[in-house]
Write a protein that binds this DNA or RNA. Structure first.
Length: 213
DNA sequence: AAACTGACCAACCGCATTTGC
DNA sequence: TGCAAATGCGGTTGGTCAGTT
């Protein structure tokens, strides 16, 4: 992997995708010591990552309350509403969608919504009334009435995943996790040429399921 | 089957803000 | 009050994969 020597001290800094081992170390460390003070956390945990990288990994992927899976129509509706109100304030928008990260919303906006907005035939809102028109169109095709509020959505359609209790039996989880991966590997008979062990979305989901959801 | 293309998303980078001394 | 370090945020990049030619 890409490694750069640091200016002041010759410390290796890992970049690129996180391995399962690194994730395990980070989860374990935070389970025991809590999050925060990321630079010293990274050092204390023995991770060759920057504090920034650890924080990002934790917030966007490893946090137990991160909600994976497709953005629902109701969430899309809410994102569009909030973006019309606040612009590219992704973290602010993300706070209104529990379990979703600013990075995820930002990516979603750019790859899905913005793409459609650029099409000339579609409504591109430049003011509030245009936006409301678009939102009404969205809402009419969803389960929520067009005058639904954020609170309506939250009460009716959002059910947060129960947090996994990562303090307790994380080691046994990993044993199960690895066994599952091996079984899946055998089933699909796909040659694995990765030297590192990478996580995928399903791993995180199964983590939450295994821990009592 | 191979090459190409576009969509998606994890992770990095740089800058702004906050915090602690 | 000023400075350095830590943190937070938004923009961007690069890798992967699925679909198409």
């Amino acid at each position: 992997m890409d490694k750069k020597p640091c200016k002041s001290e010759e410390v290796e800094v890992r970049k690129g995708p996180w391995t399962m081992e690194e994730d395990l170390i980070l989860i374990n460390y935070i389970a025991n010591h809590g999050e925060g003070v990321w630079n010293s956390l990274a050092k204390a945990a023995g991770l060759k990552r920057t504090g920034k990288s650890c924080r990002l990994r934790w917030l966007n992927y490893l946090r137990p309350d991160v909600r994976r899976g497709n953005i629902t129509q109701e969430e899309q509706f809410l994102i569009m509403e909030l973006h019309a109100k606040w612009g590219n304030r992704w973290s602010k928008i993300a706070k209104q969608l529990p379990g979703r990260t600013d990075n995820e919303i930002k990516n979603y906006w750019r790859t899905r919504i913005q793409k459609h907005m650029n099409k000339p035939a579609e409504v591109c809102y430049s003011n509030q009334s245009d936006c409301e028109l678009l939102l009404d169109q969205q809402a009419s095709s969803s389960q929520l009435p067009c005058n639904s509020t954020h609170a309506d959505f939250m009460e009716t359609s959002y059910s947060p995943l129960s947090s996994f209790n990562h303090c307790n039996n994380i080691e046994s989880f990993y044993e199960q996790h690895q066994q599952q991966q091996q079984q899946q590997q055998m089933m699909i008979e796909s040659p694995s040429n990765h030297e590192d062990h990478y996580w995928n979305m399903e791993d995180i989901w199964s983590m939450q399921i295994l821990n009592g959801d």
